[in-house]
Amino acid sequence: MTDGGAYTYAMALSSVDGVDLKKTEEELLLVSGVLKNEDIKKYFLYPKISQAEKKEKLKNAFAALVSKTVMNFLYLLIDKNRENHIQQISHAFTQIVDQEYDRVRPHVSLSRNYPEAELQKILTMVEGLVSAKRDAFGISSPAKLEFLPETEVKPEMLGGIYLRLGDYMWDSSISRFLRDWKVKVLSGTIEKDAVISADIAE
């Protein structure tokens, strides 16, 4: 199934009457987390096991944990032989919920580990930046944004911040700066006047 297909299933599920988006999202994450297991995947791929039997297994495992709507959705996936696409569907569903609740997931890379308090400061700054410049990040909603940041340490950045948000990035790392500079030097676009004015500014 293409991502487009997964999105269609997720969209259909999200628009069922009376469905609780956040709760359903969690339930889907739970189910997809279990079905990620390689052995379980093999079981569901095995063609000799009847669909009824597969449904029975799902019922035993999840009926007590998830809503009736999600259970029905899982049965439907079995009928359509789509049970192994639950990962993509769950992912697409999360994106739909993100959009509905103005949640954004910035991915922030830093060159080293910072103490918790400092890291929080950085993240607050990033959030402020994204909220203020939401147009530049392709966010059209004017509402207050809920941030779910992820952080990562990349020593090769040397310093600065790298932020990735969906299809957008803001790279203010030292390594990027040096790379750009190398290109400028090699292509001879560094100007003599730039040098002179820098001297004056000193």
Partner: peptide, 27 residues
């Protein structure tokens, strides 16, 4: 380009660095 030049240009770039928010669209 000699080292002095590089250093002074770098200095200038660093001072004006981050003045504009340069968000890029990526894939």
């Amino acid at each position: 380009v000699n080292t002095d030049e590089i250093i002074s240009v770098l200095k200038k770039e660093i001072t004006s660095y981050g003045n504009e928010l340069n968000v890029e669209e990526v894939g």
